[in-house]
Design a protein around this nucleic acid. Structure first.
Length: 513
RNA sequence: GCCGCGUUGGUCAAGGGGUUAAGACGCCUCCCUUUCACGGAGGAAUCACGGGUUCGAUUCCCGUACGUGGUACCA
């Protein structure tokens, strides 16, 4: 550990490209990234594609796209290259075998010939109420077909005959495996209770267990952060480190708390079930065609998404909740990460986005809006859009809210909420608006101040209270009881639109009220 | 079942032997605004349970319960 401190910090995110990248995955990336930047170290992306049966077309590219969108770009990766490549485990296949062989030499691993049927049979036969899932361990390994139970000659014979086999770690009978975790502190395991995990599969590919250890060593990883679902298999990794490279070379671990859904572990199904995104970006499974919604398409700003994720399980000890990435890099610390899993709350997520929208520059929001399909803002020039955005942004939690909140700046309301004006509508008011439109038709200047002044003058000439006329006017221009100040709206949409909307509404009121 | 991790309002959480137990989201009320929103002021709501230790436990220890992860030639 002392030695590690002198080395440049190197952390890695190691996803397997089998589908979308969900909340928890992005948070793991984020914490890795923050830690690396804070320590002026390297952030590596390693693709763990050792299971060929789970290969999913496009999944790797999708990961790059997500990281790109979030702005968490790795220093080394299959895409960006680097001095410790290749960064795809499938391309490193040849590197793992020697370590497995080394373990066999040392008696720390063994060869096992059991077929999946035989394994299944063992599990069935040993299954009891007390032990519903028997392990391949010190109790059962001598009853199986492996280089420990079989005579050396038979092993040689089977090998010569090309019998498929795997290599398993031989967990010691009586050892306490101790792990120092940055978040959980000291965690202990009894080696006797851990099973003989497969290290090298029959196809020659390593399992995760061998691959992480070997690659973390070869890639000089100093700190290994991963989800808490890995904590149970940590003793296997620790043993491997001890056997292969020495505990003093082992990275510092941190097992991140899980992100939970409304009930239990957050799953992609929760998204569809409860109506919120769980992936960073839309992900369509190429086989099933099933689409899981992403935060990006739902209208989140990457900054807000990251902000929300950062404080889901971490805080800086103050009341601050809004952080820019630079601040997070400065303030993040693993020992302030909460131990317990956190339930994801979509309302709170929207609040973060809302805050970022309110704080955001209008021009910037305009640019971000390009991601929203069918955004109204591209129907007219940018200058107009930017002014509209400034007027409505405090009413929008998501980028996708803008179309509804700003639509009436681009087209006259599709539906006019006549019911809202109905109770207090009368002929005096109708007369007022007819006169107002005459007045507006000829007024020299067209800006909010002038329009408001004209409106109020006419109201007092008509012996009407402006307050009683404002709501009808709003309904005429907007269609409903929402939106920014009416005269700002009239000022922006212009004379022609304002007059036309007054006339249209007047007609509707005539027939419907 | 076994192993690991965890448990402060509905949710995210600060705190940590003596506190009126922060704050945020959400919810409710009021103010501002003759809309909605923003903003402001309030409100309801919390230390899982049982034993210790202690003058005193939400805080420390031990159990229990509950939640959660693992228990694959998946990661």
């Amino acid at each position: 550990m002392a030695q590690l401190n002198k080395q440049p910090v190197r952390v890695r995110f190691a996803p397997s490209p089998t589908g979308g990248l969900h909340l928890g995955g992005v948070r793991t990336v984020l914490y890795n990234y923050l830690f690396a930047r804070q320590h002026k170290g390297q952030f590596i992306l390693r693709i763990e594609d050792t299971d060929q049966t789970r290969y999913v077309e496009g999944a790797e590219q999708y990961i790059y796209d997500c990281l790109d969108w979030c702005g968490l770009v790795p220093d080394e990766s299959p895409l960006h290259g680097g001095p410790y490549g290749p960064y795809r485990q499938s391309e490193r296949k040849a590197m793992y075998r020697q370590y497995a062989d080394q373990l066999i030499e040392a008696g720390q691993a063994y060869i096992a010939f059991d077929t999946s049927e035989e394994l299944e049979r063992m599990r069935q036969e040993n299954k009891t109420d007390e032990n519903p899932s028997p392990q391949y361990d010190r109790h059962t390994r001598m009853t199986m077909r492996n280089s420990l139970s079989l005579p050396a000659e038979e092993v040689k014979h089977l090998l010569d005959a090309g019998t498929p086999y795997v290599i398993r770690i031989k967990m010691p009978e009586d050892e306490t495996v101790v792990l120092q975790d940055l978040i959980h502190g000291e965690v202990k395991f009894e080696s006797a209770l851990v099973d003989d995990k497969v290290l090298l599969k029959a196809d020659g590919m390593p399992t995760y267990h061998l691959a992480v250890v070997v690659d973390d060593y070869l890639m000089k990883i100093t700190h290994a952060f991963r989800g808490e679902e890995w904590l149970s298999s940590a003793p296997v990794h620790v043993m491997l480190w001890k056997y292969l490279f020495g505990l003093d070379k082992m990275p510092v671990w941190a097992h991140l708390p899980l992100i939970m859904g409304p009930q239990g572990k957050l799953s992609k199904r929760d998204g569809a079930k409860y109506g919120f995104p769980v992936f960073a970006m839309n992900w369509t499974d190429p086989k099933s065609g099933e689409m899981v919604e992403g935060f990006r398409e739902r209208g989140f700003l990457p900054e807000a998404f990251l902000n929300m994720l950062a404080v889901l399980g971490w805080n800086d000890g103050t009341e601050q909740e809004l952080f820019r990435l630079e601040e997070l890099i400065q303030k993040f610390s693993m020992d302030r990460v909460h131990k317990a899993g956190a339930r994801f709350d979509f309302d709170k997520a929207k609040w973060f986005n809302h805050e970022w929208i309110k704080k955001g520059k209008d021009e910037w929001l305009y640019d971000e809006m390009s991601r929203i399909p069918g955004s109204v803002f591209y129907q007219k020039e940018k200058e107009f859009a930017v002014r509209v955005i400034g007027l409505v942004k405090e009413r929008c939690s998501l980028l996708t809210d803008f179309n509804e909140q700003a639509g009436f700046f681009y087209h006259s309301p599709e539906r006019i909420d006549a019911d809202a004006v109905k109770p207090k509508w009368n002929e005096d008011k109708a007369v007022f608006f007819r006169r107002l439109s005459e007045r507006y038709a000829t007024s020299a200047a067209w800006n909010a101040q002038q329009l408001e002044q004209g409106f109020k003058e006419l109201a007092s000439e008509s012996q009407l209270k402006p307050g009683d006329l404002l709501l009808p006017f709003r309904i005429m221009l907007v269609g409903g009881k929402f939106g920014p100040a009416v005269f700002d709206i009239a000022g922006l949409i212009g004379r022609e639109q304002t007059l036309s909307r007054i006339h249209t509404a007047l007609e509707q009121f005539k027939s419907r009220i």
